[in-house]
Design a protein around this nucleic acid. Structure first.
Lengths: 355, 355
DNA sequence: TTGTATGCGTTATCAC
DNA sequence: GTGATAACGCATACAA
């Protein structure tokens, strides 16, 4: 076999090469690599030595084919902007790694291209977790599926966070500040969780005997928030409080209002959803709702794996609790003049090295 | 064949089932699915109909095994906190999808577990892009490798951003504000790019005939920035300007200083690196350096794919330009009283729908 | 244009 | 405890 300039083989060694070198059969090599107990310590060492000598790396494809399992979980996300999806992905990957499962990622940007991307994904994984994308194409398949932040569906596994009640509480809190012309900013039709947040907004109004306004449709982008701010400044939209579908939107709107000289929260309260990093740093701090996003990702991987292995047979529905985080943008007095860094979201203890 | 309650087959159909149903050979089915031109329109339709009837989904494992290609690229990241890695991943995935390649992700948290995770990854992909992790284990393998933000290495592909010169320019800018006691905050030993940023810091001092101070070692976490702020406030560290290794660190330090009543940039200038979202929103706005992170990810996928296909034979080194972004934290007058939202980083045009 | 037959590199079921 | 050997599901060279 010819080697290249770096002295490494140009073609990967197979299980046969290892078996030859260790003078055993491929079955024995396979057993050693699988950690089977039915192998003598002596032969185990022989095999391991051969593996090491040849830099043997098994073929995942051949393994999956023979074992009829990919040991890989798929995750389909609509995008990767903002900390929300990254955090979810981190939780998913971490739990998958603990379960010895690989992770394949698909960002389903355009519906057209993503359809084929998801199909292709399905050929290489044991199960798929989907967030915010249409999964009709997966329904028919034999792959296991977990829906994240999705609709209530009795025959599909769903992992979600609590939205309706926390949105109602958040809205009530804003109403408690004496505000009466509240606007919900976001598109309830865009995603199931946004719909629930709007429903909570409506529920709070109904509970207070008020008439809820129609939602101000906007997608979760800073640029759209800027546009909403302009409409408010122009008098096109009248409100003394804005309940926004997520933080990016709320932050962009708040920044636009502040820049125009509008007093937040004096003239208008602004609250968001997600508790992103920026929300802790801006002045006034953004009142928002924190979700256990990482846990959602981890649970998705966990349940998906259980479905694949058969540990779980029936699809279930999980709703994780959220937490309203009060800062200054709603009208509450600000606790400190700097970001509240002592949050549970900071996972690591402080350890500074200075020389 | 028995179906389950939802009426879908419990076991996946194979190419043989499709061939049987369409009354052709598996070779023809394979050709149709591969989009081969050498097939009659009539048989093509027969096959496609059979595929549709059976909800046939090819086995990725069998395909990879037969074709000797996984059509999948691996990406190894040290973590997923902050927008940097997510953006890189987004660029990588997007380009990979364009190239019809799948993406497998590994977060190499703990060295121990990640070693096996990376080995396992290598069994299922054609090539691996690595960021900030030791790749010694990959050197010996036959898999193609791309190093992101890595050391200069003639026999491995490297994708990096320009650090040294932009750090020198940034440091010179701070010096231009009349500051003379500058501190670099970050750990040059932690990563190659941080080392280069410190080297630029040093180069600027040398160019100005000043003696550069030793770096204040801190990793890129908000909690560590808080600790640095406390040391400054306590008088443990003396400086009139801080050049921080990244924005999270800079923001946490700045917030800590402001909370303690220190005037930024009056008493101390603070600058960072990365231009994260928060840096545009805080007051004063954080002067920083913007990197084409998404492009880095895309280029990594691109080059990795070329290496795999053989389109590129020799490993190359790519250095992408960065851009110093001046805001208020360095001592410059702030342009506006709100975040500069009109950045090129905002990809989508404004389009607000209000009913 | 279509079919036949072989190989891809494992795992797993048998024997021994 | 170990070794043959048959799947596993597909791509593809070669025939027809």
């Amino acid at each position: 076999m010819t080697d290249d300039a770096q002295g490494r083989p140009q073609v990967a060694a197979t299980i046969y090469a290892v078996a030859d070198r260790a003078r055993v059969s491929i079955a024995t090599v396979s057993r050693v690599l699988a950690g089977s107990a039915r192998v003598t310590e002596a032969t185990r060492r022989k095999v391991l030595a051969a593996v090491d000598d040849l830099d043997y790396l098994p073929s995942g494809a051949a393994r999956s084919l023979a074992a009829r399992r990919h040991h890989t979980l798929g995750l389909v996300l609509p995008e990767l902007g903002g900390p929300y999806y990254a955090e979810l992905l981190a939780g998913f990957e971490t739990r998958a790694a603990e379960l010895q499962q690989g992770v394949m990622l698909v960002i389903a940007g355009h519906a057209r291209a993503s359809t084929s991307a998801v199909r292709s994904l399905a050929t290489r994984v044991d199960g798929i977790a989907v967030l915010g994308c249409d999964l009709e194409q997966l329904r028919a398949g034999t792959k296991k599926v977990v829906l994240i932040a999705g609709d209530d569906d009795p025959d599909v596994e769903v992992i979600a966070t609590e939205n309706l009640d926390s949105s109602r509480r958040l809205t009530n809190h804003v109403l408690g500040h004496g505000r009466s012309r509240l606007l919900f900013v976001g598109d309830p039709g865009a995603a199931h969780d946004v719909r629930e947040r709007f429903d909570g907004f409506v529920a709070a109004h109904v509970g207070a005997g008020l008439e809820p306004a129609q939602p101000v449709l906007a997608s979760f982008r800073e640029s759209e928030g800027q546009g909403v701010a302009e409409r408010i400044i122009a008098g096109d939209l009248r409100a003394d409080a804005l309940v926004c579908g997520n933080d990016e939107l709320a932050l962009a709107i708040m920044a636009g209002l502040l820049r125009a000289g509008v007093d937040v929260p004096g003239d208008i309260s602004v609250v968001g959803w997600d508790d992103v990093m920026t929300s802790r740093y801006v002045r006034p701090g953004l009142t928002t709702v924190r979700q256990p996003v990482r846990d959602v990702g981890a649970l998705a991987a966990d349940r998906l794996h259980q479905l694949v292995t058969g540990a779980a047979r029936e699809p279930d529905r999980h709703v994780l609790p959220t937490e309203v985080v009060i800062r200054g943008s709603c009208g509450c007095p600000e606790n400190a003049s700097a970001p509240d860094l002592d949050l549970p979201t900071l996972p690591h203890p402080q350890k500074v090295r200075v020389r």
